[in-house]
């Protein structure tokens, strides 16, 4: 989880990722941010994120992103 938060801080350091649950819904992240975060996640965790994972629910909070990473690591 710490690594995920570190990646997210690299994009928007001002956000409290422990509590924020509307990263997409509140338009804190734009599409450019999401794609760049996905790139970092794929590199860091050696996972493959595809079109079907690109839904707001997977990126609305650090926790959701971490859950996605865990799911893909297990696959």
């Amino acid at each position: 989880m710490d690594t995920v938060i570190e990646i997210l801080k690299g994009v928007h350091p001002e956000i409290d990722y422990e509590t924020e649950t509307g990263l997409i819904d509140k338009r804190i992240f734009d599409s450019f941010d999401v794609v760049n975060i996905v790139g970092e996640l794929m590199d860091e965790f050696d996972i493959e994120i595809t079109a079907e994972h690109m839904i707001p629910e997977n990126f609305n909070s650090a926790e959701a992103i971490y859950a996605l990473v865990q799911r893909l690591e297990e696959e």
Binding site: N36, G39, M42, D43
Partner: peptide
């Protein structure tokens, strides 16, 4: 769009 956008080469 997504296969290209999420391609490691383009992100790199």
């Amino acid at each position: 769009f997504y296969p290209l956008s999420l391609n490691k080469g383009i992100i790199k």
